[in-house]
Amino acid sequence: MASSSVMYISLLMIVTSFLMVEWRQLTGAIYTYQAQSVLIALTFALYAHSLHNPALYFWAVTALVSKGILVPWLLRRYVDKVHPVESEPMLNPILSQVIGFTVVTVVFWWVFTNHDRLVVLPSLAGEPYRMNLAVAAAILVIGFYSLLTRRDAFKVAIGLCLLENAIHLSLVSLAPSIPETAMIGVVTDVVISVWLLLYIIANVYRVTGSVDTFNLRNLRG
C-alpha cells in the first residue's frame, strides 16, 4: 500500500513542479507550491512510518510549517502587492513545455535506472522505494530550468523555492539521521532567504515599476 502511494505522490510532485513553472497566473503557481510542500511533508511521514524512524515525523512538521504555510504566505503577500500575472517568459509556452518535459524525462529515467550505481552512500541502500532520488533530481532540474528561462522575478523566486524543495526531499534519502536542531537551522535559512528575495523584488518594483529581470541589466562588464 505504502509503496503505491509513494508512487502516486512522486508523480504528483513532478506534475506540481511543472505546473509551478508553466502556470502564468502567479497565485495559481503559489497554490501549487503549497500543494507540493504538503506532498513533501506526506513523503516524510510515509518514510517515518516505513523506516520506523519517528524523527522523520518531526521533519514532516517542519516542512509543513515552513514550506506549507510560511513561504506561501510570504509569496502571496508580496505577489498580491505587485501584480499577479507573470511577465512574458523567454520561450513560447508550447516549446517551453516540450523542452522541460524532455529534459525531465531523461533525467528521471537516467537517475531511476542507474539508482543502484548512484548509491554511493550506505544509507541510500536502505531506501525502500528507490524512487525518491530520481524525483528529487527531476525537481532540481525543473528548478534550474525555471531559473534559467523565466524573466519574471517572482517566477525566479518560485524557481528557487522549487530548488530548495528538491534538496529538502533528497535529504530524506541521503541523511535521514540529521538531528532536528540542524534541520530547523536549514529551514530557517530557506524561509529568510525567500523573504529577503521577495522584499528586494518588491523594492525593485517600487523603484522601476516592473519585475521583468530583462530590465535588470544595467550592471555590465
Partner: peptide, 12 residues
C-alpha cells in the same frame, strides 16, 4: 535601481 539589481543577483 542598480543597488537593488546587485542585491537581487547577490542573494539569488
Amino acid at each position: 535601481p542598480k543597488a537593488l539589481e546587485a542585491g537581487y543577483k547577490y542573494l539569488l
